[in-house]
Computed example of a mutant assay.
Amino acid sequence: MDPTYRLYGSPGWGSTIVEATLTLMGEPYARVDLKEGVFAHEDERLTRVNPLAQVPALVLPSGELLTESAAILLWLTEQHAEAGLAPLPGDPARAQFLRWMAYIPGQIYPMYWVRDIPSRLAEGEAAEQVILARTAERIADCWRMMDQQVSPGRYILGDRLSVLDLYVTVVSRWTPRRRRFYAVAPKMAEVVRRVDAEPRLAGLWAERFPFDDGWEG
């Protein structure tokens, strides 16, 4: 039995959230990055383990496969509860934690499946441009609605960092980018800036999702 997690992903993609989680937990993992210049469904190493051709895909030390970002994060926080990266059952913050952990992959994440290859749902460049514009607006609206309903402390659920903060921090860097996120989600803006500056994640961000010039959009 291989005692190390094996994570399929790519720099800056959803797998970065899982990498940040494993880093904070101090858990070793091996990376299998997608081939450069090809779509996920064209990388046979990924499709062999996940026919949906989506990342992240995490092979557990037992050899079992776990997919879906929220499921991976919830499973990791239960298996490594000592890391304190999630309110556990019985914690008053648990209900809102589960709510928002389901909200991001339910309402926001699917927009990127459309945006990555808009021809999946549209025919012709003009139609594709409409989809790109409308999905960007939908993402911004979802962040706005979430921001209106949370009452952050240092972090979204209070004063304790959780995988929810990591989830929002990474996904908010995608389209329509951080400047738009700051404008529509001002309460969460300070949270993601704090996670950006988390010393324990400095090396990971530099390697896997660097703050290059113009990164905020």
Results as ranks from 00 to 15, higher is better:
Tyr5Cys: 03
Tyr8Lys: 10
Gly9Pro: 01
Ser10Cys: 01
Gly14Met: 01
Glu19Tyr: 01
Ala20Cys: 12
Leu22Thr: 02
Pro28Val: 01
Tyr29Asp: 00
Ala30Arg: 14
Leu34Thr: 06
Glu42Phe: 05
Asp43Gln: 12
Glu44Val: 14
Arg48Met: 11
Pro51Leu: 09
Pro51Thr: 11
Pro51Ser: 13
Pro51Cys: 03
Leu52Met: 15
Ala53Ser: 15
Gln54Pro: 03
Val59Cys: 12
Pro61Arg: 00
Gly63Thr: 10
Glu64Asp: 14
Glu64Gly: 08
Ala70Tyr: 05
Ala71Cys: 11
Leu73Gly: 12
Leu74Glu: 14
Thr77Leu: 03
Gln79Gly: 13
Ala81Met: 05
Ala83Ile: 02
Gly84Ala: 02
Leu85Gly: 06
Arg94Ser: 07
Phe97Gln: 03
Tyr103Met: 13
Ile104Cys: 08
Pro105His: 08
Gln107Phe: 01
Ile108Phe: 09
Pro110Gln: 11
Pro110Val: 13
Pro110Gly: 12
Pro118Leu: 04
Glu125Lys: 05
Glu125Ile: 00
Ala126Leu: 00
Ala127Met: 02
Glu128Gln: 15
Gln129Ala: 11
Ile131Phe: 09
Arg134Ala: 03
Ala136Thr: 09
Ala136Ser: 13
Ala136His: 04
Ala136Lys: 04
Ala140Leu: 03
Ala140His: 05
Asp141Tyr: 04
Met145Asp: 13
Met146Gly: 07
Asp147Ser: 11
Gln149Glu: 14
Gln149His: 15
Val150Tyr: 09
Ile156Phe: 10
Leu161Asn: 05
Val163Cys: 10
Leu164Ile: 08
Leu166Phe: 03
Tyr167Trp: 10
Tyr167Glu: 11
Thr169His: 05
Trp174Ile: 10
Arg178Gln: 10
Arg179Met: 03
Arg180Ile: 14
Ala183Tyr: 03
Pro186Met: 12
Lys187Thr: 10
Glu190Asp: 14
Asp196Arg: 01
Glu198Ser: 02
Gly203Phe: 01
Phe209His: 07
Gly217Gln: 07
